[in-house]
Design a protein around this nucleic acid. Structure first.
Lengths: 118, 118
DNA sequence: GGCTTATATAAGCGACTGCTGATACCTTGC
DNA sequence: GCAAGGTATCAGCAGTCGCTTATATAAGCC
């Protein structure tokens, strides 16, 4: 499943918003989602599974609970894809932001300047 | 259809990449997509329709041709949603980028400082 | 008008997704 | 061991999406 497909579902987007504020147990996520979307516990669990299997979330067991947290890598990939279009709404800041983005990428990947992504 | 659903399809993402380089006629898009994905002309036309109807592309007739171009608004919306998670991969530049983003939003919306998005 | 080119729409079908109810799994505490 | 709470998985079904073939629309040219 492609990252954009994962974010195509409003329930999954909402779960990520919840996790953005910090770790949450499956049950806590379930309470909120059940209230807001009216879907069942298995439904929520399946969405958590999709997030897990596509790298958007990590799990950590704690007793009988399972604590979920955001894993930002796929979101970063999406951000980079969107970056291709950013010049459409920030024509002036283009150069600065390209520089910032390049700096970030290099810090992350430990790569020398001037190598392309391919 | 939600913006993320629109981008969930690889064909539509590719079409947007093509349009990012400038206006293109339906037929020209069709040639590339047909070659790369092996789908028919109506298939491509249907994807263009989805992009149109969801505000990702605009059309301009020119003779018998129809010239498509990127409309960046929905992409900008996605960018703002992703922005909520940007601190996960750029913790240090957070403040600077928040400032940049705020500046952009105000320039775009003509709004005074301090009003929230809701 | 009639033919050609460029593009869009319609109808129908298969595949996939997301939901539910039922059930299995795993950890804790008695 | 057994019961209970917390969570994940299974089976099945309905709705949606994307594809194809066939057809319609519209502009240009003779």
């Amino acid at each position: 499943m492609h990252a954009f497909d994962v974010l195509g579902d409003p329930v999954r987007r909402r779960i990520l918003e919840l996790l953005a504020d910090g770790e949450m147990a499956s049950g806590a996520v379930c309470e909120v989602i059940t209230a807001e979307f009216g879907i069942s516990q298995p439904g929520v669990s399946q969405h958590l599974k999709v997030l897990r299997e596509n790298g958007f979330a990590t799990v950590r067991p704690e007793g009988t609970r399972r604590l979920y947290a955001v894993n930002s890598e796929p979101l970063r990939d999406i951000d980079e894809w969107i970056g291709r279009f950013r010049r459409f709404w920030t024509p002036r800041l283009d150069a600065l932001e390209t520089e910032l983005a390049r700096g970030k990428r290099e810090r992350r990947l430990g790569r020398p300047k001037g190598e392309s992504d391919g």
